[in-house]
Simulated scan of single mutants.
Amino acid sequence: MTLEGWDRISICDSLPYYDTECEKIPYLTQKVDLELASEFTRLDGLHSGVPPADLFPRNATLLAELTRIETYNAMPPPLDLEETFAQLNEPLRTSPTSATDQTWQEVILSARVYLEHQRMRQLNLALVQTYGSNSWLTQNYPLQRMAEQAEKDLKSIIYLTSRVNQERIHFQTRIGEQLATLEARWTDLVSKVLQVQMSNVSLEIEIQELKQTEFQIRHRQ
């Protein structure tokens, strides 16, 4: 059910606090879900009272990783320098005499890259052993601030969501009373229409009987 004009807000709601027919009629739940899904495609958000979450606005790497997880894409495998070096050395192992100068240059360059990679790994291990504990301790402070900010944002969203639900309860209760009044009025009008139709049928039968009686009287004369 789309409700417009409520505090100048256009929202999409299924009146769950008033309409309980979905609990009594199972197939209605599927129809309501389909209707809500079609309505959500035309809305910018679920509710204007709850702003959309803007995750990692300053960190493109984390945002890309979150997008990858949401789309269920596998993490790309890391570059294996040992495998790359082995692939470049394969022509030299099979036929070293037929290798060209270009092949030798690629192998030498790959060997230099591999050795530099190993040197950097050893250097990083040495740095971690020397300064690792202090570095991790220092990195924990911004992570702790990020966690505290995330908790504050979560509390704010929970508060806004609770506020929206309270407004929904109040709004749907008020609208439910109006719907109940309109339904009772509709039932009364339908009942009156049926009474009028039954009276018309009864009058038509009575008219037919009178016509037959008149016809019989005329023939007797």
Rank of each mutant, 00 (worst) to 15 (best):
M1Y: 03
M1P: 11
T2V: 13
E4F: 06
P16Y: 07
Y17L: 07
Y17M: 04
D19I: 01
D19H: 01
E21K: 13
E21P: 00
E21M: 14
P26G: 05
P26D: 06
Y27C: 06
Y27S: 14
K31I: 07
V32Y: 00
D33E: 12
L34M: 09
L34C: 03
L34Y: 05
L34P: 00
E39W: 09
E39T: 01
T41P: 00
R42Y: 06
L43V: 04
D44I: 09
H47K: 02
H47D: 08
V50M: 09
P51V: 14
P51F: 10
A53I: 14
D54Y: 05
D54R: 13
R58F: 11
A60Y: 03
A64V: 08
T67V: 08
R68F: 02
I69A: 10
I69L: 15
T71H: 05
Y72T: 08
N73E: 15
A74C: 04
P76W: 01
P76Q: 04
P77R: 07
P78C: 04
P78S: 06
L81K: 09
E82P: 00
E83N: 03
F85T: 02
A86E: 08
A86M: 08
Q87D: 12
N89L: 15
N89C: 11
E90V: 00
E90C: 01
R93N: 12
R93K: 15
S95I: 04
P96R: 07
P96D: 09
P96Y: 05
P96T: 09
A99F: 03
A99E: 01
D101L: 15
Q102S: 12
Q102K: 14
T103A: 08
T103V: 07
Q105T: 14
Q105D: 14
Q105H: 11
R112Y: 07
V113D: 08
V113H: 11
L115D: 09
L115T: 10
Q118K: 15
M120E: 13
R121T: 13
L123R: 15
L125H: 11
L127I: 08
L127K: 12
Q129A: 15
S133C: 05
N134F: 02
S135P: 00
L137Y: 03
T138N: 13
Q139K: 13
Q139P: 00
Q139H: 14
Y141H: 11
Y141W: 13
Y141E: 10
Q144T: 12
R145F: 02
M146H: 07
M146T: 06
A150S: 09
D153Q: 15
L154E: 06
S156D: 13
I157Y: 14
I158Y: 08
I158K: 07
Y159E: 11
S162P: 00
S162R: 13
S162C: 10
V164N: 00
V164L: 06
V164M: 06
V164H: 01
Q166M: 12
R168A: 04
H170C: 04
H170Q: 12
H170V: 09
Q172M: 07
Q172P: 03
Q172C: 04
G176P: 03
Q178S: 06
E183D: 11
A184D: 13
R185S: 10
W186M: 13
V190W: 06
V190C: 09
V193T: 07
L194Y: 08
L194V: 06
Q197N: 11
Q197L: 15
M198D: 15
N200G: 01
N200S: 05
E206Y: 02
E206C: 04
Q208R: 13
Q208D: 12
K211A: 10
E214G: 01
F215H: 05
Q216C: 02
I217M: 09
I217E: 07
R218T: 02
R218D: 02
